[in-house]
Design a binder for these strands. Structure first.
Lengths: 199, 199
DNA sequence: ACCTGAACACCGTTCAAGT
DNA sequence: ACCTGAACACCGTTCAAGT
């Protein structure tokens, strides 16, 4: 059998979802495809590149279609931010270890820049001073990545019969997100000259 | 030579700071101590336990002494939160890959609970409704961990002569932190019945 | 209490060579 | 363009045995 890049990514996602990130090795993936591990290096320069491609695909699958180039969410800036953050969370929760994978890839700046750009566009519609927007975007992303990683870790740890965690964590996410959006809103309405708190 | 648990942790921190987290293997650490890798399993059940002990020690070293049991920071609740967050950031930045290590350990809930408890205590002095405090604490921690990981990754990547990143990132941290504290303050002064934003 | 020595079951990556 | 086969330099962990 001969494979394309996309075949490898697709199979890798299946392995990830079935066996977890720790078991997603180049050797294991090769075995799963019926191919030598070294064959994968024809499609990807190294494992990190493969992981970046997987992260991109997971985020792509979690994105609502929508006209390309069109605004990615409707409504007020805060509603658009909330939608983007919820979609990102949902995309990561859709696959086992999705948050850990996407978080690692984003931390090393290897791709998955789509959410960043979408949030920056949404925040352009707020009154937030332009120079604060990048840090606001990053603050939102750190929240979503960190919270979802926590959530997924605990969900998976207690997967043997734990109940009631879904709703609790779900509303928790909205509350934390609302807290940050409130902070952005207060800076949008009352810009300050000295924004940093004292040490 | 015969070692204690604390000797192993101390040497591990030196290896971490000199060669990075990726090179901190049980075999490498054994070699550095002049001991078989298997000897380390007399002191730690597994590598994760060792990493948790290292994270605890890094945080302990970054903590200002202060009387045990006494309030860990003086002043208003927001100043105390800011101090705790800055100290946590500084502690992680003090060692190579410190943020990645502490972040991993905290994500798996293995220890390093000190910052959580300190922030919870500081927030008890705000007007924030009690049920919102845990999510506020976690939101602050996710910000500090995520931002510092970003910062350290980029600082280390451009360590060959990059200039001016320190101050920029430093103020960035304060701004993002101020954003979240503003959000907490707005909820403290104007509690809501429906805190979550719409999807 | 602390360590050795040997083994088990793995890794990512490279590279000449094949079709 | 895609893959094989073999090799290199590693991993974490276990376990009987030593002092």
């Amino acid at each position: 059998m001969r494979y394309h890049r996309t075949d490898v990514v697709e199979r890798a996602i299946e392995v990830l979802d079935t066996y977890g990130l720790a078991d997603l090795s180049m050797r294991r993936l090769g075995q799963e495809l019926g191919v030598q591990p070294s064959a994968l290096y024809h499609h990807f320069a190294n494992k990190q590149s493969l992981l970046a491609a997987i992260a991109d695909e997971i985020l792509r699958r979690g994105t609502r279609p929508g006209a390309p180039g069109a605004p990615l969410a409707e409504g007020a800036w805060d509603e658009r931010c909330a939608t983007i953050c919820h979609d990102l969370r949902d995309a990561m929760l859709a696959y086992r270890d999705g948050a850990e994978l996407v978080g690692t890839v984003m931390a090393f700046g290897l791709g998955a820049t789509q959410p960043y750009d979408e949030l920056a566009a949404a925040l352009a519609g707020s009154g937030l001073p332009e120079e604060l927007r990048p840090i606001a975007v990053r603050t939102l992303l750190h929240f979503v990545l960190g919270h979802t990683l926590d959530e997924q870790t605990h969900l998976q740890a207690g997967s043997a019969g734990a109940i009631g965690d879904g709703p609790r964590e779900g509303s928790d996410f909205g509350v934390g997100l609302g807290l940050i959006l409130d902070g952005i809103r207060s800076r949008s309405e009352h810009p300050r000259t000295t924004p940093a708190p004292p040490r």
